[in-house]
């Protein structure tokens, strides 16, 4: 059962993730994008970084987030700059809101992604719908 008390909770900064050129190319191919030299970095790639922060929430007994009951509701990325190969990125997640809707919960996470100079690169905002026990 999702704990509404986690609203406002911030999770620790994740360990650095080094963005690899071939990983980006693989991700671009997997999203039907270009893979030729000079291809555009896939705009949804930061989901892979957000995932590291989200895994902290899933592992947190206080949160009570049962991932088998989760449906992805909304996703947004706000970019300060494009990612580039070689970036060393860390992320920090805050539980922006927890709302109840019928027997379900809607939880929104804001994950800020920083580069090695600690400058904000991207904010990933994810809303998950957690189905209730009897839904």
């Amino acid at each position: 059962m999702l704990n509404p008390e986690i609203q406002g909770k911030r999770y620790p900064r994740t360990r650095p993730y080094t963005v690899g050129l071939e990983k980006l190319r693989e991700f671009s191919a997997a999203t039907f994008g270009n893979t030729a030299d000079g291809f555009v970095v896939p705009p949804t790639f930061p989901i892979a970084i957000q995932e590291h922060s989200l895994s902290l929430v899933i592992a947190d007994p206080e949160a009570g987030l049962d991932f088998s009951r989760v449906v992805h509701g909304e996703q947004r990325f706000i970019y300060e700059r494009q990612l580039v190969p070689g970036d060393e990125l860390t992320s920090e997640l805050e539980v922006a809101s927890v709302k109840s809707l019928g027997g379900n919960h809607m939880v929104t996470f804001n994950t800020e992604i920083f580069d090695k100079q600690d400058k904000l690169v991207c904010t990933a905002i994810s809303t998950l719908v957690v189905r209730g026990e009897d839904a």
């Binding site: 509701g73 909304e74 996703q75």
Partner: peptide, 10 residues
């Protein structure tokens, strides 16, 4: 140009 903000609902 480049994408600076991208959002969807599923």
């Amino acid at each position: 140009g480049e994408v600076v903000d991208y959002s969807v609902r599923f």
